[in-house]
């Protein structure tokens, strides 16, 4: 895919929960290979937005196109096939706590790989994904035995196992100490380089944002309030933008 091709297009998306209008005519385009960070206050709808992109949440109106496919027009099987190309790193990691690390990584493969492929290639793929995050030795451990940072890395390895073209990160450094947060941010950069994936990152962590963002979008009152590079937005005089950098 060539540079500057939009891989995710969000147009006039609205989403309400009762009287709470979370997204109001929100629009954005994300180009191939980009690391886009969406910044906004807690409860401003950032997580809702990326869950709409992968159709975990249905929008009220508007359209979302991912890798050239309108997600609302897809049937269940087509949507599941598209989801193989989209990785999602959950804020809570969402590791299956009744499964070992290996079983966690094997889980996405059981739907998208044939039994023969799994028997031949799954072990190698799991090991490679774990090596990418530097945790090959945890393969037979349970998630409960891992630290917060390790769980985040394993969750990232599970996201990478299907070699996604787009990766959605929901607050990847929240709850981690600054050192581990920096390590995770660096890992995200390394992953983006290795897999040439497009990333959409939800974050409040300015250190993380500064490290990874090619471009930023400010989500304020459910709208795409402003966009630009980290330094452009940091230098902005608008009080609503400035308060994020203070």
């Amino acid at each position: 895919m060539e540079k500057r091709t939009p891989v995710v297009t969000v147009e006039n998306v609205n989403k309400s929960f009762g009287d709470n209008h979370v997204l109001r005519d929100f629009s954005m385009k994300v180009e191939a290979g980009e690391n886009l960070v969406i910044l906004g206050k807690s409860g401003s709808g950032k997580s809702v937005l990326i869950k709409c992109i992968i159709k975990l949440i249905e929008t009220d109106s508007g359209s979302i196109t991912v890798l050239g496919k309108d997600i609302d027009a897809l049937g269940e099987d087509e949507l599941n096939r598209l989801r193989a190309d989209i990785g999602f790193l959950f804020q809570s990691n969402a590791l299956y706590d009744s499964m070992t690390v290996k079983e966690n990584l094997l889980f996405p493969l059981r739907r998208h790989w044939s039994k023969e492929d799994r028997e031949k290639m799954a072990d190698a793929a799991i090991l490679e994904a774990l090596e990418d995050v530097g945790l090959a030795h945890t393969i037979n451990m349970m998630p409960a035995e891992l630290s917060g940072g390790m769980r985040k890395r394993i969750a990232l390895a599970r996201t990478l196992i299907l070699r996604p073209k787009v990766i959605l990160y929901d607050e990847p450094t929240t709850g981690l100490d600054p050192i581990t947060g920096r390590e995770i941010s660096q890992l995200m950069i390394d992953v983006q380089k290795k897999y040439n994936a497009t990333s959409i990152v939800i974050s409040h962590d300015l250190n993380c944002i500064k490290m990874i963002a090619n471009r930023m979008i400010m989500l304020i009152n459910g709208k795409n309030y402003a966009s630009g590079t980290f330094h452009e937005l940091e230098a902005a005089t608008d009080s609503k933008i400035k308060e994020f950098f203070e």
Binding site: F88, F90, Y96, F107
Partner: peptide
């Protein structure tokens, strides 16, 4: 609560 069901859905499993 820990988003494991959402993770399952995202991975293409019903």
């Amino acid at each position: 609560v820990t988003e494991q069901i959402d993770a399952m859905e995202v991975s293409g499993t019903n």
